Simulated scan of single mutants.
Amino acid sequence: MLIDIIAGARPNFMKIAPIISAIKQAAAAGKNISYRLIHTGQHYDKKMSGDFFEQLGIPEPDINLEAGGGTQAEQTGAIMVRYEKVLLEKRPDMVLVVGDVTSTMACSIAAKKLNNIPVAHVEAGIRSGDLTMPEEINRMVTDAITDYFFTTSETANDNLRKAGTPDSRIFFVGNTMIDTLLTQMPNFKKPAIWDSIGLQPKEYIVMTLHRPANVDEEDGLRKLMKAIVDSSDGLPLVFPVHPRTAKMLQSVGIDAPNLHMIDPLGYLEFNYLVQHAKAVVTDSGGITEETTVMGVPCMTLRNNTERPETCTIGTNELLGTNPTAIPPAFKKLLKGEWKKGNIPELWDGKTAHRIVDTLLNI
């Protein structure tokens, strides 16, 4: 059984690492399973991609489609054209896609349109309900043509059932990102910023911002940043800056003595910062899952989330994109009144093995 595993952007890498490991273990135990790692090249630079492969023990891709750059449509088209050629040369038994990036959707379409190759979607069924997000389109299109749905929550299961997916094709397995988190936690590394500015555990805030709603408009970004700085009570704000956000921040000209903007970090360094932070302010979905498992308070600057369990069960609160929501949230945090949270069902580090066991029995 040959499975193509698709990875295209940084959020994918944490999700595929444990699956590759579980396939290798199954193959070593004599099971009839192998994989081919396809990197679409959707994102590729040393900081945003290369470091992750090295730190997470992901092998070099078998094939790199080198389909980075361009508009959404150009990138989707380039990935589909190049992946189709790979499929024509050697057809896999299944294509396994993860998450909700452009590569996820594009490779699913290419596989299904070429001789109906079966598609398995890891992290299927999550929905934000926000069609202005490219990721939401990717999720919906991928799930519309997927054969096997691997889910992270009962909410995702319900979303799929409402769309008409039969229970026989839904497999509630947990969260492979958490597999990676729990595996790598002993390997977390102190980043250089820790000693250079004298950080202390639980006495600083980690920030990440990259979504267009927050960073693409100067006045809005300036107001968000000012609200965070003004509410932080002088605590260090450590902000690894996404390349997209860096350009905008230069125009905005935000500066404060406690604001430390740094280059993007590797997985092990970034999660060291998160693990020891007083709180995280973000607009990322994946980080809300990691903070939930590590018990770190999280404020999400979005109007919706495709991961509601991080709010209903975990440590996350959805603040929206209006800066007026930031001061009261910080006030609650600084008074020690933030909720403790719990860990969602099956977020236990064993998800990838459940996925591989299921694949072997399909």
Rank of each mutant, 00 (worst) to 15 (best):
R302L: 12
K247N: 11
K335I: 01
V274W: 02
Y267V: 08
Q55G: 03
Q25H: 10
K350D: 10
A67I: 11
C298E: 10
E289K: 14
D45Y: 04
L333T: 07
L301G: 10
R10Q: 06
P201S: 08
I5Y: 09
M133L: 15
S108N: 02
Y204H: 10
D216K: 05
L359F: 14
S103G: 14
A352Y: 00
D219E: 15
T291N: 06
A29E: 14
D51W: 13
V101K: 03
D147Q: 12
T300G: 05
D51Q: 15
V95T: 13
P59A: 04
I254P: 06
W347K: 00
I355P: 02
P243C: 04
L65P: 13
T292A: 05
N322K: 10
R161F: 03
T102K: 13
P297H: 05
T102A: 12
C107L: 04
T104L: 05
L209Y: 01
F270S: 04
D51I: 14
V280W: 02
H43D: 11
A325C: 12
L114A: 00
L268W: 12
N342P: 00
R139H: 10
T321R: 11
D62Y: 09
L360E: 08
S196E: 14
P134S: 10
I126V: 11
G234V: 08
L182M: 09
S196C: 02
K331G: 00
A22R: 03
Q25K: 14
G77A: 15
G266T: 07
A325R: 12
R354G: 03
K278R: 15
I145N: 00
L237V: 07
S231P: 04
